[in-house]
Amino acid sequence: MKIEPGTCALVTGASSGIGRAIAEALARRGAQVGLLARSLRELEALADALPGRHVALPCDVGDAAAVQAATDRFAAEAGGLDLVVANAGLTHYRTVAEQPLAEVEQMTRVNWLGTVYTVHAALPHLLAAHRGHIVVVSSGAGLRSFPAAAAYGATKAAQRGYSTALRHELAHTGVSVTTVYPGEIATALHDHERDRMPPWYRAKDARPATTLATKILKAVEHDRRELYHPPEVRLLGIVNGISPKLADRMLHRLRGASAAPRLD
């Protein structure tokens, strides 16, 4: 699909990070954006700062009814729905033995079920129009999960399986799907846990969210099945798919022992 003036796009997790960068890139292209996140004040400030007219949609993506209401409201106010970006997500990096179940449940509700609720709410609008595109922002952790990020990686792997099957289910409907696998991106995602990030995490290698947003819009317009950014993320997925042991050895060498403590 072509992103142009008049395109109606819904973005979850729009108030910061990757979601905000996507919303800004869409607005620069003339799209009308439904900005969905929890904070009304932040969304209204963003809507005012963007060129064009946009809709602030305060909503918890972990609440199915709220997501449905926000999606329907945006489609009604914008006059349709063309593009949906399921981006909302959060992290809690801890070992399985140390992690409270409440953190696992929160990541499951936001990262995984938030994606399900978003697609469930948006899909009838897209199918009725016989056109449109869905973007699911997963993670490189969905290809190979890392120590201290088991639950987070599991939610991202769930997104991967879901979006891969969905793309095939939507064949011949006019609606398509792109799954995005970012590596380390410069956002506030880990601000609440900087003091306990594992040694394998490399904040200095984080790429700008604006670059990823530009690549996502290009991937939509070219109907790409998947987007890996940076490209090394794709290599990780390929190697891990062929030989997890080889991927472990590669990561052990590149990221240190904390990325793969067991090589047997």
Results as ranks from 00 to 15, higher is better:
residue 44 E to L: 02
residue 19 G to P: 08
residue 242 I to E: 05
residue 253 R to D: 02
residue 230 P to A: 06
residue 177 V to E: 01
residue 160 R to S: 13
residue 184 E to Q: 14
residue 214 T to C: 10
residue 73 R to A: 14
residue 104 V to K: 01
residue 81 L to C: 14
residue 30 G to A: 05
residue 63 D to P: 02
residue 221 E to P: 11
residue 15 S to H: 06
residue 89 G to V: 08
residue 59 C to N: 00
residue 166 L to G: 01
residue 196 R to M: 02
residue 198 P to G: 06
residue 11 V to A: 08
residue 9 A to L: 13
residue 108 T to F: 10
residue 35 L to Y: 02
residue 124 P to V: 05
residue 17 G to Q: 08
residue 72 D to Y: 02
residue 58 P to D: 04
residue 116 V to K: 01
residue 88 A to L: 10
residue 89 G to S: 07
residue 102 A to H: 07
residue 236 L to S: 01
residue 3 I to F: 04
residue 93 Y to N: 11
residue 45 A to H: 06
residue 164 T to L: 09
residue 100 P to G: 13
residue 222 H to E: 15
residue 102 A to R: 15
residue 5 P to M: 08
residue 70 A to N: 05
residue 170 L to S: 05
residue 84 V to P: 00
residue 35 L to K: 02
residue 17 G to F: 13
residue 65 A to V: 11
residue 122 A to L: 12
residue 206 A to P: 05
residue 77 E to Y: 04
residue 258 S to Q: 11
residue 163 S to R: 11
residue 152 Y to Q: 09
residue 20 R to F: 03
residue 54 H to S: 03
residue 171 A to V: 10
residue 218 K to H: 14
residue 51 P to W: 07
residue 243 S to W: 10
residue 83 L to Q: 09
residue 107 M to A: 08
residue 84 V to K: 09
residue 103 E to N: 13
residue 87 N to Q: 11
residue 41 R to C: 02
residue 142 G to Q: 01
residue 57 L to H: 06
residue 40 L to K: 11
residue 93 Y to V: 10
residue 199 P to F: 12
residue 99 Q to W: 01
residue 151 A to N: 09
residue 253 R to C: 13
residue 168 H to T: 07
residue 171 A to E: 12
residue 167 R to F: 03
residue 222 H to N: 14
residue 119 V to Q: 00
residue 1 M to T: 12
residue 114 G to F: 02
residue 246 L to E: 01
residue 248 D to Q: 11
residue 230 P to Q: 09
residue 84 V to L: 14
residue 85 V to W: 10
residue 23 A to V: 09
residue 12 T to V: 09
residue 122 A to P: 07
residue 14 A to N: 02
residue 42 E to Y: 00
residue 110 V to P: 03
residue 130 H to M: 01
residue 133 H to T: 05
residue 254 L to I: 09
residue 67 V to H: 08
residue 27 A to R: 01
residue 224 R to M: 13
residue 169 E to Q: 15
residue 140 G to R: 07
residue 121 A to H: 05
residue 209 A to G: 09
residue 170 L to N: 08
residue 154 A to Y: 05
residue 145 S to W: 04
residue 97 A to S: 05
residue 109 R to V: 03
residue 135 V to G: 05
residue 149 A to G: 15
residue 261 P to L: 07
residue 164 T to R: 15
residue 36 L to A: 13
residue 88 A to W: 03
residue 9 A to R: 09
residue 173 T to Y: 10
residue 68 Q to P: 00
residue 246 L to D: 05
residue 100 P to H: 10
residue 63 D to V: 04
residue 240 N to L: 06
residue 1 M to C: 12
residue 145 S to N: 08
residue 43 L to S: 06
residue 25 A to T: 09
residue 5 P to G: 06
